[in-house]
Write a protein that binds this DNA or RNA. Structure first.
Lengths: 372, 372
DNA sequence: GGGAGTTCCGTTAACGTTTACGGTTCCGGT
DNA sequence: ACCGGAACCGTAAACGTTAACGGAACTCCC
């Protein structure tokens, strides 16, 4: 560890030029000849220049505006994502981010318009949930061309030029669900079902494939039926599942990867299957709790929305602040919630929302108070 | 949103005093009378003063030295904790932390001496793993009195004045293990065993209690035997388990909460019990992998050492930087690893270690390159 | 009553960057 | 020759905090 870091002044001095020129060259601002610019860049590289962020932020005190485009809470999932983002923003030293929430009322409705609005207002970065990736690809490309980095949460928008993606690992989710299903069924014969949003979404197809392959590998006497696509619509989920249950009385388990687990459970009850069906669901919301408590749902794969929000904001901020060098693909491991550890997660959710409510920051704080 | 934040100058002006005095008052430096100090503090409070960290760091460019006192890797656990700490330190905007590792070769050996060394060298903060909390309490108290905040990882040191604690939630771990055990055994009768480090350690006693209560609540036909204390010693673990297996042929499952799972497995094999025993272990290290693959170990509770390290450093840094207002008690939810999702976690561990190796930071970076 | 030593406080120069402004030089057009 | 305007570059003032220095007032002691 050692010598002081090189500054703009250092570069300028060793080049016999001025600090202003160096600055212009490094930011390719106009007003510097190609040759000197090249020389500056070269020198910066050899001297190992790295900008001092404290000085930068102190000098140009502009805040980074970032737009968060998500869904209104159908369940609490997106509320928690937003909470995670807020939390992470608040914990940023250098409080230089300003968050604008743009929420769409329904799935896929006004999604593109909201994105365009964010681009139009020239925000510095965007966090988005692309519920229909294909329709959004063009808009995201436009954002990238406008040099606005876009981070996707939960669902990727491939080939869109997005900066990065934060999501739960599909392989980890699908596989653990399959492994648990197999263990719980304990060598029994039978068929299992899976519900997804839409097989056209990469994530869901992957999750499905992981579930299938793990099942095949370790529990060959369980047969996976054709996936049910419910598009997160309650009626569709109920209808299709009811049909499935009637047609497959030998069904022993079902893995619900969407948020629409309640209608599935109702269909199971109405088909008098609830007792002998092993149900694994996704995420955790109030309506699901009694089913977990009673054991009707044996486990749920919690996709950690809060962590997803945190990571997304971190990724974006890191990039905006210093051209972030970290991986721009974050795959989170999901959590497993069963009735045993259910209270831990419920406590956590409520803590977090109460913390949001009491957001009165103490302006000052002394070391002494805490070490006392 | 709105008006610019108040600065030292603002306080000084509205008090008719100077910026230097305000500074001295806020940091209770000598050279300011009690009355003016009170007036300054009052005014700072009413104006809602919050220090500008960028300016602070730019002005006094001193780095925060923090000491990380952990165990040499018996397994990879502590290596991963340190990796998490390093990672988090590197991702800190304002690169103002310097980390000094002080590792003890064996459990509890030289632990106190290392802590004293850190205090003696006047580091700004300490992250420590107190393997024997009682013997360290006094030393931690000394650190607190010397105004050095101490964060504990994995194990708490109660009543020591430590700043905070980062650990896996004992209730969540114990309960999920019990719930899984019950489900896997699927209504079978029998007794279940648990191994811990030492019941005198709060965390282990809690984990044990959680395991017990969840078992009692949901699977009353499983009987929990008296916990086995192995003190992370291989021979002790083997010997005691061997004895247990011989004395309890009706044993159906065992939950190993310590790192010494290999000797337990060997004892089970030697007792010809491996086939019909449901084994749940803790953490993930190379030697355990084949057992997971073969299904001998049905699941392992992964305590997320990397996340623990990250959180510990974050907590400490936040406190040092701005007198951190966040909760100083972080309880992580453990991850569940089974053969289905095993590869996900192994891939992750290897990625992280390879990233450590190639730690050549690009000095400069342009937005264009990434948005291309 | 003239140092010497306190105690309190104001002033000022840093820290590294950004940004606005001013100053060259050179070129094409009246 | 003069103006207008580019294109390039240097200068200096911010940003909010820290830290060192100096000065004023007041005490104490020979």
């Amino acid at each position: 560890m050692g010598q002081p870091p090189t500054t703009l002044r250092d570069i300028a001095k060793s080049l016999g030029t001025s600090i202003g020129t160096v600055h212009r060259a490094l930011h390719d601002n106009p007003g510097v000849s190609p040759e000197t610019k090249a020389r500056v860049l070269q020198m910066a590289r050899t001297l190992g220049y790295r900008p001092n962020l404290a000085a930068r932020f102190l000098s140009s005190r502009k805040t980074l505006r970032i737009s968060v485009n998500t869904l209104q809470g159908t369940t609490s999932f997106w509320d928690e994502v937003r909470t995670g983002i807020r939390e992470e923003a608040a914990s940023l030293l250098l409080e230089n981010v300003e968050i604008e929430f743009r929420t769409c009322p329904r799935l896929g409705e006004g999604e593109e318009a909201a994105l365009e609005a964010a681009i139009g207002e020239k925000v510095d970065g965007i966090i988005i949930f692309p519920s229909r990736p294909e329709t959004l690809r063009a808009a995201i490309k436009r954002a990238s061309r406008a040099r606005i980095p876009v981070v996707c949460v939960a669902t990727d928008a491939a080939n869109s030029g997005r900066l990065g993606i934060v999501a739960v690992d599909t392989l980890a989710s699908g596989s653990i669900a399959a492994d648990l299903m197999g263990r719980f069924l304990n060598g029994r014969q039978g068929s299992v079902a899976i519900t997804v949003f839409d097989m056209a979404i990469t994530e869901h197809a992957e999750k499905c494939a992981a579930f299938d392959s793990t099942l095949k590998a370790f529990y060959p006497n369980l047969k996976l039926l054709k996936p049910i696509e419910d598009h997160d619509l309650e009626k569709e989920a109920y209808r299709k599942c009811r049909k499935l249950f009637d047609e497959h009385p030998e069904l022993t388990g079902i893995y619900v990867t969407t948020e629409a687990s309640i209608p599935v459970l109702q269909a199971a009850r109405d088909a008098n299957l609830l007792e002998r069906l092993t149900v694994i669901t996704t995420d955790l919301f109030p309506d699901l709790v009694p089913y977990l408590r009673s054991g009707a749902v044996v486990a749920t794969i919690y996709q950690r929305p809060r962590a997803q929000g945190q990571m997304a904001l971190r990724m974006l901020h890191e990039f905006l602040a210093e051209g972030g060098r970290r991986s721009h693909q974050v795959s989170l491991a999901p959590h497993l919630v069963m009735r045993g550890n259910l209270d831990f997660f419920l406590r956590r959710q409520s803590e977090e929302s109460s913390k949001e409510r009491a957001q009165s920051r103490e302006p000052m704080h002394d070391l002494a108070e805490d070490l006392a």
